[in-house]
Design a protein around this nucleic acid. Sequence first.
DNA 1: GCTACCGTGCCAAACGATTGGCAGACTGTC
DNA 2: GACAGTCTGCCAATCGTTTGGCACGGTAGC
Lengths: 346, 346
Amino acid sequence: MAQLARLAGLDVSTVSRALRGDTLRVSAPTIERVQRLARREGFLPDANAASLRRRRSYVLGMMVPDLTDVVLARLFEAVSTAANLDGYLAVVTSTRADPARRRTAAHDFLSRRVDGVIVADATLRHAAPELLVASGTPFVMALRSGGRHPSVVVDDLAGGRLAAEHLLHAGHRDLCVVGGPRNVSTAERRMRGFVQACGRAGVEIASSAMRHGAFGVDGGYRSMLELLEAGQRPSAVFAVNDYNAIGAARALQEHGLIVGRDVALTGYNDIAIGRYLETPLSTVRVDHDLMGREVVELLLRLVAGEIPESVQLQPELVVRESSDLRRGGEPLRSAAPQRPLGEETQ
Amino acid sequence: MAQLARLAGLDVSTVSRALRGDTLRVSAPTIERVQRLARREGFLPDANAASLRRRRSYVLGMMVPDLTDVVLARLFEAVSTAANLDGYLAVVTSTRADPARRRTAAHDFLSRRVDGVIVADATLRHAAPELLVASGTPFVMALRSGGRHPSVVVDDLAGGRLAAEHLLHAGHRDLCVVGGPRNVSTAERRMRGFVQACGRAGVEIASSAMRHGAFGVDGGYRSMLELLEAGQRPSAVFAVNDYNAIGAARALQEHGLIVGRDVALTGYNDIAIGRYLETPLSTVRVDHDLMGREVVELLLRLVAGEIPESVQLQPELVVRESSDLRRGGEPLRSAAPQRPLGEETQ
DNA sequence: GCTACCGTGCCAAACGATTGGCAGACTGTC
DNA sequence: GACAGTCTGCCAATCGTTTGGCACGGTAGC
């Protein structure tokens, strides 16, 4: 920067202000001239030095359990672009739900002096890493909640309810639930919302008609297999996410039950392939882009010293053939209001 | 740190060395004592200050076109863990293949003074962002190659060849190819490898039997639809990635052709759902974890001033029902040597 | 014509860690 | 007991920006 100052015939301090666009202390033409010169010389101010001096890094850290998960990847992308709009850089770490990795992630973030952290890998037992809490760095919980910390989540009770009301309305009374991990708030609330809505309609779901399992195709496959082997013969199944639903469909198929024909099936999240499966999958759609924006807004409020309210987003039911055969003829590209959720691979 | 030094009755310089574990200048017991004290006091050295003074940030930046893509997400995870093992932090940005976003990504990385960059979003026209090249920061190309820069890629010619030989061996002669984007090296090479191998076996693939399209379910769906509508009736189809294959399967189905029974189908990448589809999908497996490790090794070599050789990884054929009905009875969990590629959602 | 004020830009002290140079203490040897 | 050699730890300069304080020149008001 000193070199740039010499070139411009100015003091470094003036150059610094000019680069930041400080119109109160530097004239507009000077600002223009300096910025042009900097671009021409390929000069990029050292953000680390700036962080040091300003005690603000303009970096936000995000912890997710698994970046390979389209929902989380999408959420991070949304967070990242929202952060950029506010002049922040977003950085992500995949913790694989491992306490040790969460610790090192927190460690990394804190030693880089991030201005705020987004915790998207909370479980009911482990909300935010101790280190993070102790540091006093502002943070918000995203997607999953944990404790009574500021958070941005989906109203998963409502999501479960939507699925239930849809299936009940179609006349189904023999229902099974393919659940997620026991200690994750989202999974639990989707299940609870479903069961509660059924209860209100006078349909009790026996605990033998529900299974907990991992958040993946295989988890859904195994859970459904167990239910079937235990003698369950549901007319409709609610899986707490789409991959679970895909796994469940496979298990049903192996038992001679065809989804859409013999059994109604509903998932959660509206991932892109859902629409392309041989029997397109009904689901509950969540707007993860909106969530990302809300998360950043909430976090930056917190960083600014405010004490903002938590946010709860409303999900939306999407009915396709897997739970309603009459939908059959619907054209594939009917309505894709949002960017589809993860339909690509290299 | 000054405070910590006072607490320990030492000079800050000694504390600094102790925290870094400099055994040449600080005695083992002192190191131990200082580190324990730091932990107890919750002290984390400021990485920005350290970056400033040592002209090394121990951060690596990675640019990908889309984090929502399981392959890229997985690759980043692998890079990240490999980087951590070497004391580096990996940071990722999704550029959506947009030149402007690539530029700001490069800008961010450079102003943060990353020690090296991984470019995984190259196209044949746009290799690395100009800004990056001009800065002289070491970088490697990953997954895709561009120009003759150091890179870590899969031998996609070989991958295409594996698929071709498999289908030819099964007696197929009417072949179609569902291709990817024209300007992406991986897509082009998979296609070329396939076509070349067919040529060597005396089976010519007419250009009317090939389509280029986007790297997604929808891309595959559209390409296959176009081929069918143009009168193609292949007995086997090679799609350059698994999602393309899934989309193609859907299009075939709409034309009354069932994959596995009427048409053989092969994809690429071995994503997790492949195994769970109603007709499990044959594919070409790539070890992205290994790739991540190789990328980091190559980049760190470059950072150290060496001029390392590029790396090419060998893919592996995985045959399932979609191209070989006899595989039918195979148990689902037979062989999953690696962590499955992206089967989870929240 | 004098004062008050404003716009502009320079000086220098931070931010927090790292590291070469050097001084002091200690050990062992002759 | 002196001296060389080794080990340990302190001093102070440095990385590149930012920013409060201050000085200077010009302008407007009375």
